[in-house]
Structures are given as structure tokens and as C-alpha cells.
Simulated assay, not measured.
Amino acid sequence: MKFLYRLGSYILFVRKAFSKPEKRSVYMKELVNEFEKLGLNSIVLVVIISFFIGAVLTLQTAYNMANPLLPRYLIGYLTRETLLLEFSSTIVSLILAGKIGSNIASEIGSMKITEQIEALETMGVNSVSYLVGPKIIASFIINPILYIFSVFIGIIGGLLSGLLSGVVNFEDFIYGLHFSFNPYYVTYSIIKTLFFAFIYTSIPAFYGYNVQGGALEVGKAGTKAVVDSSITILTVNLILTQILL
């Protein structure tokens, strides 16, 4: 019963987030700010993680291909498939849920306990649309871009680790990247990133907006937001994989 009540509150919260803003100019300014906070501030983290994961994927694939009958181009092929299908969409989104989700919950939760949200409501501003709407829309644009960026950096990391360790040569790795490529996998993963972006922005915003108490409760809301966002992302990933593949 408690779950159904919370789910209903969450649906109403999301509806308010997508309601028409009072002033488009202010809304657009907030949207630009969210591009910077959600996107630009996450690029370095995505680059570092994607590079090293791509490098590790190549080395692990190579060391598990002990059979000399297996062609070496499979190293590049399997690295590409792993990055395209799972890592750069799901794992990166889980990482962003931890980084961005906790920030959103803390930011909105702090505004809630300091009565800044009540001040917005008093001035006739739809606080949910103003605070949450730009975050969700910005994440819809940023997350697919970060996904493509992650795949590219991961492949570079895999190529460099393969060459430096000598487990694969340049020609075999590049051939593996082109081998049996299915463009639909990119479409499938981008669709997933849109769902994941919505999850790791709306759920933390919901928890932050409904904080009651002080700084301790804000911290607890941030923790719950990250946990619930991560579980929801994994659940939706399973459902979308069953539907789309």
C-alpha cells in the first residue's frame, strides 16, 4: 500500500515537472545551466572510466582466448560489442546515477529544508517544473552524447592496451571493430540511455523535493535516491532488453 501511494505521488510529481513553464526565458536559462552541471561536469569521469574499462576488456578477452584456432580479430569484436550493448549505456548510467543523482537529491533537498521552494511557490512559480523539468530534458540530450563518447573512448583504450601489451595488432583489432556490425545495437542502447536519464534525474528529484527534517534527512534522501535509481535502472534494463532485442 505504501509503495502504491509513493508511486502515485511520483507520477503526479513527474506530470508537474513537464507542465508548461511560466516564463520560457527563465526556463531556458536554467536548461543551459543544467547542460553544464549534468554534462560538462561528467565528461572527465566518463572519459577516465571508459578508457580503463576498454583497456581491461581487451586484455581480459585476449587472455581468455587461449585457443590458437580463435582469430585475434575477435578481441576487437568482443570489446566493441560489450561497450555498445552494456557498458557505455547501463554501467555509465549507473555511475552517473551515483554522481548526478546524489547531487540532485541534495540540491533540491537543501532548498526544501531552507524553505526556498516555498518561496518560489509563494511567488506563483511552479517549483517542480522550474527545478526538475530542465534537469530531465538536459539529461535526455546529454546521456546519449555521453554514451557515444564513452564507446569511442573505450575503443581507444582497448586499442592502446592491445597494442602496448602485444596481445593484438592494429589490423586485427580494427577488423574486429568492423566485423558483423549491427547498427541496431546503437539504436537499442540510445533508447536505453533515454530511459536511464529519466530515472536518475526524476527519482532523486522526487526524494529531494519530499525531504522533511534537516541536513541528516537530506543525506538519507540522497542515499535512498541513488539506491532506488540504480535498482530501477537495472530492472528497466532487463525489461528493455527483453522487448528490444
Rank of each mutant, 00 (worst) to 15 (best):
Q242D: 06
F179M: 04
L159F: 13
I148V: 14
E171I: 12
N210A: 01
I174P: 00
I239D: 00
L177W: 02
Y185G: 09
D228A: 10
V167E: 11
G162K: 12
G176S: 06
F149E: 11
N143Y: 13
N143I: 14
I203F: 03
L238N: 01
N210K: 12
V186G: 01
T201P: 10
V226D: 05
L238M: 12
S229E: 01
T223A: 15
I153F: 07
P144W: 11
V226P: 02
E217A: 14
V168Y: 06
Y209R: 09
V167N: 08
V227T: 04
Y184D: 03
I199M: 03
I203E: 06
T241D: 11
I231N: 03
V236I: 15
S230N: 03
S165E: 10
A205L: 03
G176N: 05
S230V: 10
S202D: 09
G219T: 01
L164E: 15
Y200A: 06
G208C: 05
I199E: 05
D228N: 15
Y184K: 14
Y175P: 00
I231M: 13
D172E: 14
V236A: 04
T235K: 09
V186M: 12
K192E: 03
F206I: 08
E171T: 13
L216T: 15
Y147E: 05
Y207V: 07
P144T: 09
T201F: 13
L244Q: 00
G154V: 07
G176R: 03
S161A: 15
L216D: 14
I199S: 03
L160E: 11
D228M: 11
T201E: 10
Q242P: 00
T193Y: 01
F206G: 07
K192H: 04
A197V: 04
L238E: 01
F206H: 14
I174K: 11
N237F: 12
G219A: 02
